[in-house]
Amino acid sequence: MTLALIITALVTVLAAATVMSLRNLVHCALAMAVAFSGVAALYLQLNAEFVGFAEILVYVGAIAILIVFAILLTRSGETPEKSVLTSGWLAGVAVSAMVFTLLGWAVLTSSALPKEIAIAPAAPVKNIGDALMSKFVLPLEIVGLVLTAAMIGAVIIALKEDKKDNSGGQP
């Protein structure tokens, strides 16, 4: 079990590092799908089956496709010749390295983490559905409202700005 966990963790970490180091955006999107699959496999090993499959559906399915569509629509599929980094990239890398060092030091030396391994909890889908429909029904409704608003807003934002410009196209 531990060996599988370490292999999954390594795959996830390597894929995430690949996402931010490749130059071509399409390759970045593919590596991102691999990283999200690794996170989903981690969820499955942590006994959260429903969340793992939801991760595959939402991230590997929907968001990866959405990002590939955005890459195609903005015509940025080719490898850029110029630098892909911003002007102040060194400061950003330094800050993120400091963040990782601090978090890693805290995780490795903290005495607050539980030492003994807890017995594996079960999260059957029936219990999750019961909780969503009874205790968390108000947040569920609000999330539905937010998703609807986001969908309508995304359509309105991505609409064409000027209708007069494309009069030469289709009738």
Binding site: T2, V13, A16, M20, S83, S96, F100, G104, L113
Partner: peptide, 30 residues
């Protein structure tokens, strides 16, 4: 290392690399 620490380290690395990408890359999609 306990499995919890492995998960937390992976999570810390994902956060750091995501932050580095969001701050240093030029393309908006990245």
């Amino acid at each position: 290392m306990t499995p919890l620490q492995v998960c937390l380290l992976v999570s810390a690395f994902l956060f750091a690399i995501g932050f580095a990408g969001a701050v240093t890359r030029r393309h908006a999609i990245l």
